[in-house]
Design a protein around this nucleic acid. Structure first.
Lengths: 342, 342
DNA sequence: ATGAAAGCGCTAACAG
DNA sequence: CTGTTAGCGCTTTCAT
C-alpha cells in the first residue's frame, strides 16, 4: 500500500514543435516540414533535421495534421456488442491488425442498438477517423449512405443498407445455419429453439431467414426466440424456455455467448447436455471447446476476417483497388454438446 | 436509396463549420462560438444560432477544438494484453463506462511488452487524449514520470514506477494469492507450479512476490513458471510441466486465460482435474464457472474497477479532487477444479 | 534547395 | 452583449 504520489493537476504538455526544430537548426518551418518527411531537401539537411528531431523526441502532432486536412492515423471500430465474447475476440484481432499497419483504433460499442450505432459512427466521423470498420448490429436503415460516401467503410458480417463500402467481409451464415440444422436433424431433433440476438429493431436478418428456410426444407419446427447477448441475458431466458411443458429437444444459439448462458441455465434446472437437451452455438469462441460439455459450434476464421477487413481499408487508403469482398466459409465443429434425441 | 448523387467518389466531407453558421445568421464567428456553448450571448441569439446549427446538422469539429487546446473527448485505454480474456472484459467495461460519460475510447494493446506500452502511451498522448487509463504490463521503468506529469493518468492493477497519477485502482493481490495458497495448502498440496505472465522484462511483480512470501510461510514448494497469455501460449507449457517426472500436484495460474490452456493440456495428457492435478486460476473470468471442471479462481469486481478508474479520471478532468485510490478486495471462488491431493 | 505566407475550425483575450 | 484579432502546429502553394 501507500507509495503512490498523487498530483492535483497535470500541467499542459510542452511537446516540441516543428518550429522549435526550425529555430534550433536555423532553418524555416517549411524546410523542416519537408525534411522530416524526406522530401525536396538536400540529404545533408534532412539528416541534420532528423537528428535534431530525435534529440528533442519530436513527434508530429496528429491533431494539427488532421486539421490541416491530412490523416489522423486512426480507424474507427464499431462493433454490435462488446458484451458478446466472440466480438471481443474480433475487436482484439482487428485492433492488432490495425496496429501492425501503424494505425490506431478508436473503439465503440453499439450495445445492440442500430440507432446508437449510426450515432456512434457519426461521432467517429467527427473525430476524423480515416476509415471505419463496422460489424453492423443489423441491416437497419438510417442514412449510412451519406456517411459511407464520405468515410471509407468496411463492413464485417453484415450490410449497411445500400451504402457504398470499400470492402466487405461476409460470413456465409446460410451455409453455417444449414449445417447446424442438418446436423441436428440427423440426430433426430425435430423441435428446436433458436436463440437469436435481440436488437432494438430487428428486421429480416440473414441468419434468421436462413433458419426459416432450412427449417422448412428439413421439416423442422424451429422457434425463433429473441435473446440478449451475454451470460446474464440468456440464462433467465433459457430457464423460461427449458421449463416449458413443450420443451424443445435442442437449442441452437446464434452466438456462443448465448449458449454459455443456456448451459448455465441447464445446470440450474438439472438438465443434462446432451442427454436431456442438445445445445449448439455459433461463431465458435476459443473457450467453447473447454466448457462442459464442449460446445458444438460453427467456426469462422477470426484472423482471416480481421486481416481482410483491415486489408480492404488500408488498400483503399493507399489508393489501390483490389478485391473488395470476401465470404468466409463456416466449419462446423461437432463436440459433445449435441447428441441424438433420446 | 434513390438520390443518385453524381458526385464522384472521394468527396471530402463538407461538414458545416462555425463560419457557415455565422454567415447565415449574420453574426460573427465568435458570437456563434459563444452562443453554441450557451455563454454570454442573449437568450434570443443563442436560440437562433442553435436553430441554425441544428438545421445544418452542425457538430463542432473535435480536431479543431483539440488543436486550439481544448479537449478531444477521448480517453486512451492501454491494456497489458488483449489476448487475456479477463482484460478483454475489463476493456469492455471501461469502454462502456467512458461512453456513459460521453467520452470516446482509444484502445491500445501493449501485447505484453513494457517498452511497447510506453511507446503506445506516448502515441496516445500525441493523439491528444484527455486522459489515460492504463493497466500496466509490469512495474517496469521508463519515463512514465514525465508522461503522467502532463497527461492525467489512472492505473489499474499496477504501478507506474514513481509516476504521479490522478487515480489508482489496486487489486489486493497479496491477499488473493494468500487465499489461494492457503486453500491449496489446506487440501494437502505441497508442490505447486505457479504460472505467471511472462513479460519482456519482468522485474519483481507484486503477485510473484506474494507467492514467494506465502510459500515460505506455509512451507510450500512453489515453482514460478513464466508463461504467455492466451490458450495457445499456456497449453504447450502445461504439457511440458505436467509431463515431468517430478510433477506438481497443483497448478496455480496467475490468470484464468492461462488456466484454460492448462486445462486443455491436461485433457491431452489424460490427466483428470482435480483427481490427478488441482488447478486454480486468477481474476475469475465469467466463463470460468462453465468450463469443465468449473475453475477455482479469485474474483475482483470488474465493474467496480472500471467505474472507479473512469470516475477518478472524470472527477479530475472536472477539477474535483476526491478519493483517488481504491483497493479492490479478492473473493476466492472455490469450484471443482481444486481438490485434495490424492 | 529553401523561405514567406496563408489557412484548416475553433476559442479566448481584449476591446467596443 | 457582440465583433476584432491572434493564434494552436502543421502542410502547401508560390516565390526566391
Amino acid at each position: 500500500m501507500g507509495g503512490a504520489t498523487l498530483t492535483p493537476m497535470a500541467t499542459p504538455a510542452k511537446r516540441p514543435t516543428i518550429r522549435q526544430i526550425a529555430q534550433e537548426t536555423g532553418l524555416s518551418v517549411t524546410a523542416v516540414s519537408y525534411a522530416l518527411r524526406g522530401e525536396q531537401m538536400s540529404a545533408a539537411t534532412i539528416e541534420r533535421v532528423q537528428a535534431k528531431a530525435d534529440e528533442l523526441g519530436y513527434i508530429a502532432d496528429p491533431v494539427a495534421r488532421a486539421l490541416r486536412g491530412g490523416r489522423t492515423g486512426t480507424i474507427g471500430l464499431l462493433v454490435g456488442s462488446l458484451a458478446d465474447f466472440w466480438q471481443q475476440t474480433l475487436a482484439h484481432a482487428i485492433q492488432r491488425e490495425l496496429r501492425s499497419h501503424g494505425l490506431h483504433t478508436l473503439l465503440a460499442d453499439a450495445d445492440g442498438s442500430p440507432a446508437e450505432e449510426l450515432a456512434l459512427a457519426q461521432r467517429l466521423a467527427a473525430q476524423r477517423v480515416d476509415g471505419l470498420i463496422v460489424a453492423p448490429v443489423g441491416p437497419a436503415g438510417g442514412n449510412w449512405v451519406e456517411l459511407a460516401a464520405h468515410l471509407p467503410s468496411v463492413t464485417i458480417g453484415g450490410r449497411l443498407a445500400g451504402a457504398e463500402v470499400v470492402g466487405e467481409v461476409a460470413f456465409d451464415q446460410t451455409t453455417g445455419v444449414g449445417e447446424v440444422l442438418r446436423h441436428l436433424h440427423a440426430l433426430g431433433h425435430e423441435h428446436i429453439a433458436v436463440l437469436s440476438w435481440a436488437v432494438d429493431s430487428s428486421p429480416d436478418r440473414p441468419s434468421e431467414r436462413a433458419v426459416r428456410e432450412q427449417a422448412a426444407i428439413l421439416g423442422l419446427r424451429c422457434e425463433l426466440v429473441p435473446c440478449a447477448y451475454s451470460l446474464d441475458g440468456s440464462r433467465p431466458l433459457a430457464l423460461e424456455v427449458l421449463s416449458r411443458a413443450d420443451r424443445p429437444t435442442a437449442v441452437f444459439c446464434l452466438s456462443d455467448s448465448m449458449a454459455y448462458g443456456v448451459l448455465h441455465g441447464c445446470r440450474e434446472l438439472g438438465l443434462r447436455v446432451p442427454e436431456d437437451i442438445s445445445l449448439v452455438g455459433f461463431d465458435d469462441h476459443p473457450l467453447s471447446r473447454l466448457v462442459d460439455p464442449p460446445l458444438t459450434s460453427v467456426n469462422w476464421s477470426v484472423d482471416r476476417a480481421a486481416r481482410s477487413a483491415v486489408g480492404f481499408l488500408v488498400d483503399h487508403l493507399a489508393g489501390e483497388v483490389n478485391e473488395r469482398r470476401i465470404v468466409i466459409a463456416p466449419t462446423l465443429s461437432v463436440r459433445a454438446s449435441s447428441g441424438p434425441v433420446t
